[in-house]
Design a protein around this nucleic acid. Structure first.
Ligand code: MN
Ligand code: MN
Ligand code: MN
Ligand code: MN
Lengths: 220, 220
DNA sequence: TAACTTTTTTAGACAAATCAAAAAATAATT
DNA sequence: AATTATTTTTTGATTTGTCTAAAAAAGTTA
């Protein structure tokens, strides 16, 4: 019985994402925050996910995702990101509009659909936010990336992803003219507040607060 | 409260389709057959749909769809058919593979998605089975069509739709070489069993049983 | 009209997903 | 270590969607 319901898939995806954030065990509260549900609902869901053996659940001590759980989560993430590419590349959505729709589309269950979509999109390796798209076996080829805020002055690089992909943040980046693929050079870093000044495509200078720069990921 | 759940949308769509089939009131049994659920489940759903005023429900006497119900059903049908076009035109699905996937995709709720999909597909007027795609206001421009079995000998026409769009039937049509858009001429009609012989694209002759011909729709 | 058949509804149960309120366990602080 | 604060789980309810079995209504036939 490895078949998950849409809700279970969503919870598992969230658990996977929090796990990847480095922390050892994932807490009920963290999940409830990300899922926008109450902790009581989470406890209930954890019991079910535990029964299906996609997580290891020790009451009061949080959860750890299992290997099968990880595989399943990566399949959902793959679908989510492929749909995001579709929405942006083919339907002219902007990168801040795709997330909610992809959150629905990711639960459509058809192997053929995803294979064909992947092919149709030209087997993309990254989604509109620069996140890697797992292959059909759940393998992700991650590229080394560093926060813009951690760069040293005069270093050059390329914006490859964003850490925060909330609509508000993405629209802000649009406004200031930062985008995935942009060639950048760190011109100045203010000691006082950690804010930075960067040169984009050898043309335009942008100022960013430390907070913003910390959510922009760069490949050297 | 005009928002329907996916299940409610599916029931309503089925009720709409049966209604269009000419019958006055739609029976619980007919719905249960099409929905592949038990009559008891249907009764329950009819109560809910009645409360939401998308159908008029008189216990024991079947249901009639209301005007608002019709509007909503047509929106779901629009989405279903647009997705079918997408699957066939863009993802190389064959016309017998699209139905189940479209039945899932049709419930994705995003106005923008459907607008953009429509635009991306070039505002198609018919789906892969020749059925008309309602516009965003629920208007359908139906074209006059007649069953191949009702044609007179020597009449010419064009195959524009199928009445039965089960995978088995569609694959059979593929096998014999009948397709939407084919120019045909009725060569012979056997009195004995109602079977017909047709000429396709002035090239190939096909034999069809009365049953098959009755499910192929032609425009003169 | 009465008896039988078919259809439909009701009653009672269950699984999934959610919540609020209360209880229990764990963590933090004096 | 005892008290307080926080987190997590439990309990009990609710909604949606489904089922089986039983009851009721409608339709058909003799
Ligand atoms: Mn996303
Ligand atoms: Mn993304
Ligand atoms: Mn269909
Ligand atoms: Mn169709």
């Amino acid at each position: 019985m490895k078949q998950l319901t849409p809700a279970e898939e969503s919870y598992l995806k969230v658990i996977y994402h929090i796990s990847e954030g480095g922390k050892r065990s994932v807490s009920t509260n963290d999940i409830s925050f990300k899922m926008k549900t109450k902790p009581a609902s989470v406890s209930d869901m954890l019991r079910r996910l535990g029964e299906k053996e996609v997580i290891e659940y020790r009451k009061y001590y949080g959860v750890n995702i299992t290997e099968t759980g990880k595989k399943l989560a990566l399949q959902t993430i793959r679908k989510h990101r492929l749909w995001e590419v579709f929405l942006v590349e083919k339907l002219r959505f902007s990168w801040d509009e795709v997330h909610e729709v992809a959150d629905e589309l990711e639960h459509i269950r058809s192997k053929l659909l995803i294979q064909r979509l992947d092919e149709y999109l030209g087997f993309p390796k990254f989604d509109p936010h620069g996140d890697p798209i797992p292959d059909e076996f759940g393998d992700v080829r991650a590229r080394p990336r560093v926060a813009l805020s951690d760069l040293e002055v005069n270093t050059t690089g390329q914006i490859v992803a964003v850490k925060d992909s909330s609509a508000a943040f993405l629209r802000y980046l649009d406004k200031v003219g930062a985008y995935i693929g942009a060639r950048i050079k760190l011109l100045e870093k203010v000691e006082f507040d950690g804010s930075v000044e960067i040169l984009v495509d050898n043309k335009k200078t942008i100022f960013m607060s430390k907070d913003v720069a910390g959510n922009v990921l760069v490949m050297l």
